[in-house]
Design a protein around this nucleic acid. Structure first.
Lengths: 219, 219
DNA sequence: ACCTGAACACCGTTCAAGT
DNA sequence: ACCTGAACACCGTTCAAGT
């Protein structure tokens, strides 16, 4: 059974034992959950992944027992944190894709790279911390789900392009996303000086565009 | 003080206390070191990063004390393992770069992508395990050293191109490497089906080439 | 000059008791 | 329906003793 599924079952199990309450009790659990996420990010940023401990969580105001009421183990917490974060990034990319529907491919590529880049750069400390917090088991499933969601959005966008079409759009699109996701991660990992980062980002957009032009049947 | 430097000092400190011996005694330490690396990779592949424990190392025939004679802490072991691995990859890329000296850029790009890809794919289980074992502190320095070494090799290669030259080769080259390194990692992370992997690899080479063509002053 | 493994501090996880 | 924190098992690291 997959990791994501095991966690989902664990939640279901908990709800079966304690069916959801109402009003302030319900609110309390949401508050605790937010507090856990908040404390986790704080510790992650200030101390790093291997100093993310129960002791430090307690110092940050979250008791051990409370944590284990929401997550079956530490990995599940990190998994949920990544899921939450990727959700936000995916949504921003989807919005950008919808915005450029029917546009020429040059605008699409630019919009896509910009949206993804900005979603990652907005809180670059969090982005870097989460890149490093990669869950051991089933991290693949998380990445896969994210990649698929973005894939659907960008395919729909490129299909609507006013000035190009493709013999094998799925392949072209998969390549394009692998390149964008991968390159952005690489830049974060290398911690290049900001001005160079911007230049590389610009070159990346140019590179994607020249690829899309080379691979297209032009209209 | 950087992590790499601290480790180097630690080694120096040890040698000061026990200056290097000769013959079979010297050989013994080399054998132990290899045994440690071997055991580490075995456990990493079989059990994963967070089950890489001293207990399991002992079961694999390496005593705790022996490990701490060679590495000041667990992170240092993983650091050394990554360093060793990147050393091999860098050398393969350098060889490929020398081989395509003076060739047309299409052959250069193809040779570069192929060399890097094959170096990573040769033991894809090890590659994936090491991607995940990223050291907390100073992993950047490791990646940076590797990137710089490859950078020097590829710049030298592209400068010798028979059919193109560039206004800003350092930027073009940095972009190209970020794209290749990043995309390959992304493909490993996503664990795409092998046939699709090959297709993406092919598209990647094509993409790099179309970028280099677009960015060049042609001869 | 190097290896062994018991000892210790700390971390992940559980669970009885509380509200 | 949710929270607390002491208790326990296990892991990273040290160090006295061995060869």
């Amino acid at each position: 059974m997959s990791f994501a599924l095991r966690i989902r079952n664990w939640f279901r199990h908990r709800r079966a034992i304690w069916p959801p309450g109402k009003g302030h009790v319900q609110a309390r659990s949401a508050i605790t959950l937010d507090a856990i996420f908040e404390a986790t990010i704080q510790v992650l940023l200030a101390e790093g992944l291997n100093r993310l401990t129960t002791t430090r969580a307690e110092r940050a105001g979250v008791s051990v027992g409370a944590m284990y009421q929401y997550f079956p183990h530490k990995q599940a917490l990190l998994y949920a944190l990544n899921e939450r974060y990727l959700e936000i990034v995916a949504e921003k990319v989807e919005i950008a894709c919808r915005k450029h529907h029917g546009a020429p491919i040059s605008q699409m590529v630019d919009g896509l790279v910009t949206a993804y880049w900005e979603a990652k750069t907005e809180r670059s400390d969090v982005t870097r911390a989460l890149y490093r917090s990669a869950v051991e088991l089933d991290n693949d499933a998380l990445i896969e789900a994210f990649a698929h969601r973005v894939d659907v959005a960008t395919i729909a966008m490129f299909e609507s392009a006013s000035n190009a079409s493709y013999a094998d759009l799925p392949l072209v699109n998969t390549t394009l996303l692998a390149v964008i996701f991968g390159t952005v991660r690489n830049i974060f990992e290398r911690d290049l000086p900001p001005s160079l980062q911007d230049n590389v980002r610009e070159q990346l957009a140019m590179m994607c565009l020249s690829y899309l032009k080379a691979a297209a049947f032009k209209h």
